[in-house]
Design a protein around this nucleic acid. Structure first.
Length: 419
DNA sequence: TCTGGGGTCCTAGGACCC
DNA sequence: TCTGGGGTCCTAGGACCC
């Protein structure tokens, strides 16, 4: 029988912050989204205080103050590095591993004879080598492994490992799990299902897959089958090639000045182009959007976007910047308080798939490839040493990060000392 | 005062083809 | 009265995930 495990770090960002701060054990900790906007991770103590996931910080200020909740800005340099260490450790436990997100991975455990003990070993090893707590869910399908992981986190008695290979055990858990907790069932679907009298995961599992397909979609049909132990979603050990790259951000403060917003979108364009080159891809499609805040009652609301096609697929910052400034002039409107903008690249191909322009000598990629390599190499050692005309070098106001922890593992100056 | 960012997949409908 | 059938490609929008 096939057997999948889902290994998921517990409150990952909070656990990372605690790694070098033993004094934060047992106290409530939260981590914020970009711009210090919303709460995106909570320690168990913070959850117990009733602080919800995704809640804007300003709405829980009182609770934070009253219970001395420790607040951190998101520190992706730290989380990315810790994540890589966790994944490296997991690789020892299965040759087939799919890194599903920054804090979770699916493992193929098909040959393993005592999965629960194996799960415990995984937990202990990650804790010893990296120091963050993980939970392990095991099942014959990915959806069931996900559900097992949910149970492993929710019920203390499981000691962080749950195996749902046994159908009876499976049924007992499904019966007490709300349908909305199932992987692939979001808020909207949960509400629609409710109307059909489907409230628990077991209700969903007992529906006729064909009818679910007709009423909803093939995606939900697969979910139903997976809940019944029929594996429909395989392990993807090779990360799929990206289909789009986005660089977008809310501004640290509202901007109304043409020049300032223009510089900012150029900055996004340059970052997106950098990501594109790191993937080794060329883009044909360039998309730009700007908008005011939907929560801002003080000015006129405005949101607009434009898409352009490059004459020749490119990863050249200069070509992409030129396109973005052209698009920008097409959608700019005076007198608005802009809150957010973003650049999206898409319609990718690889350099060997490019059809060169009949009337020009070589592509942008040929002409500027070396220049881009040099720029990336220089900027790699610390952001913002070289930038293009129009682009805005990063400034303090660009993003609020008032509660940032040190980059303990990725900057020499920030390595903790033991006295 | 203060509300994240980066992705994927599926479906329906229109344009167009023979 | 009554005007086909089968197919592809593209886009926008919706839903989901972390």
């Amino acid at each position: 029988m096939r057997r999948f495990a889902l290994v998921d770090c517990n409150n990952f960002y909070c656990s990372c912050e605690r790694l070098f701060r033993p004094d934060l054990k047992k106290v409530p900790v939260v981590v914020l989204s970009n711009n210090d906007g919303c709460i995106v991770a909570r320690s168990p103590e913070a959850k117990a205080l009733g602080i919800g996931m995704g809640v804007p910080l300003f709405k829980v200020r009182d609770t934070v103050k009253r219970h001395n909740v420790r607040v951190f800005s998101s520190n992706y340099a730290l989380y990315g590095d810790i994540s890589a260490r966790v994944m490296q450790t997991l690789e020892r436990f299965s040759p087939d591993l799919e890194i599903y997100s920054i804090d979770e991975a699916f493992l193929d455990l098909s040959g393993v004879t005592s999965p629960v003990e194996y799960g415990q070993e995984i937990r202990a090893t990650v804790h010893k080598h990296v120091g963050v707590p993980v939970s392990v869910g095991i099942g014959p399908t990915k959806t069931l492994a996900k559900l097992a992981n949910y149970a492993a986190k929710k019920f203390k008695a499981t000691q962080g490992v749950v195996d749902l290979s046994d159908p009876q055990k499976r049924q007992r858990l499904l019966a007490i799990t709300p349908a909305g907790e199932v992987w692939g069932v979001g808020r909207r679907l949960a509400a629609s299902l409710q109307k059909l009298g489907v409230t628990t995961a077991l209700d969903l599992a007992r529906r006729e897959p064909r009818r679910i397909r007709r009423r909803f979609s093939v995606v939900l049909e697969r979910t139903v089958r997976e809940l019944n132990g029929e594996s429909c979603i395989g392990l993807e050990a090779m990360p799929a090639a990206k289909k789009q790259i986005v660089c977008s951000r809310s501004f640290g403060e509202k901007l109304s000045d043409y020049g300032e917003v223009r510089q900012t979108v150029c900055e996004f364009a340059a970052r997106a182009a950098e990501k594109l080159r790191r993937e080794g891809l060329l883009a044909r499609m360039v998309h730009l959007f700007i908008r005011t805040s939907p929560f801002d009652g003080t000015g006129p609301g405005y949101s607009n976007a434009a898409t352009g096609t490059l004459p020749c697929p490119s990863a050249d910052s200069l070509a992409i910047l030129a396109m973005v400034t052209r698009l920008f002039d097409g959608i700019w409107k005076d007198g608005c308080r802009y809150a957010k903008a973003g650049v999206m690249l898409g319609d990718f191909c690889t350099p060997d798939q490019v059809q060169p322009d009949l009337f020009s000598a070589g592509t942008d990629h040929d002409r500027n490839g070396k220049l881009m390599q040099a720029v990336d190499a220089i900027n790699h050692s610390g952001r913002g040493k070289i930038w293009f005309g129009g682009q805005r070098p990063q400034k303090d106001w660009f993003m609020r990060r008032a509660h940032l922890s040190p980059a303990y593992t990725t900057r020499w100056e920030s390595i903790p000392e033991v006295g």
